[in-house]
Nucleic acid binder design. Structure first.
Lengths: 179, 179
DNA sequence: TCCATTTAGTTTATGCGTAAAATAGTTAAG
DNA sequence: CTTAACTATTTTACGCATAAACTAAATGGA
């Protein structure tokens, strides 16, 4: 079918067949692989070295920047997880003595969460290690490569955000909203 | 402190302080953001359009390439999830009539899993949409940008893989294995 | 043959994640 | 003041994920 244009390079071939998203799929799979590899390694090390998990670490990282505590709602927004999820996560950290809750005096529905001194101390140690792990895992790229990758990912982020928030391109096939 | 070297650009500043992994952390966070944004959007659309989930979709994608079915063990290896996880996932798809199990006749411990005709038909429709979604989300990058990002991520993948499989660099501070 | 070992898969206990319903406190309109 | 609407959080029901313990079948000696 496409044999006659095989010599044309990728730049020109794109969108030749609008149904073909092979390069995008390939890119997405590699992005996912990278992300998953790093995340899996970080989870593994957090478990092995500190007997903790990534969600716990992320929660503590948020709290570290709010010495006076933070409302559950704000924590939920920042971590981009549901309220219900946080209820349990915070509860487990409270059990471990790393975090404490305090009901607001001005609004008895609301609860502040903050690190305990022990939580803060533990987090400091973990954060240092975490930073070194990331440095180690990404350290195979030099500064220029890192910067370029960062910028390209910035473009990608923009592309995804725009497509996500776009009402939905009408698309040749689908009639404009079946229901 | 660093005021006198503020004019020096990033290329020269790197590794000035070997404990500082700010650029790597920044890069990792952006990578994670991109990956999560895409994944969240795909999950959302799979749920809204097809009332299914990403793990189900991924499982069916594996099976689609094995018309004669696949052993649970192989499926587990390919999807990089635990055996126990697959037990439940397969069970739910069997309940939905999209997948069928068949105990091997030569080894009664082993079980083949394959798509039912309906499963295959459903997957074909979903895969087409999925491909278009990815095309839409990543489509803000032109072919050259996609190719460059793909190559940079290839380098990153190499860096992460090497660091992960490396015994562990002795590190100035830590004594060689505390316990 | 018999038994130890390995292999394939399931079960169990736990954690993290969601959406949707429920609870309880606050605010605002009348 | 009373009630309706809103807001903050928890609860519930579910799905997905793991590690570790378990079951059952195959394999390979002795």
């Amino acid at each position: 079918m496409n044999k006659t244009v095989d010599y044309i390079d990728a730049e020109f071939k794109v969108r030749e067949n609008p149904e073909d998203h092979r390069t995008e799929l390939r890119l997405w799979l590699r992005l996912l692989t990278c992300s998953n590899m790093i995340e899996a390694e970080i989870r593994k090390r957090l478990r092995e070295e500190f007997d903790t998990t990534l969600p716990r670490f992320d929660l503590m990282a948020q709290l570290e920047r709010a010495p006076d505590g933070m409302l559950l709602g704000e924590l939920s927004r920042r971590m981009m997880v549901s309220n219900g999820n946080l209820t349990g996560l915070v509860e487990r950290l409270v059990q471990e003595g790393l975090v404490e809750r305090q009901v607001s005096e001005t609004d008895r529905r609301a609860a502040f969460v903050r690190l305990t001194p022990r939580g803060r101390a533990d987090f400091t140690v973990m954060a240092k290690q975490h930073s070194e792990w990331i440095g180690e895992l990404l350290g195979g790229l030099n500064a220029r490569e890192q910067e370029e990758l960062w910028m390209r990912l910035g473009r990608l982020k923009g592309s995804v955000g725009a497509a996500r928030d776009r009402p939905e391109p009408p698309g040749k096939d689908q009639p404009p909203a079946a229901d």
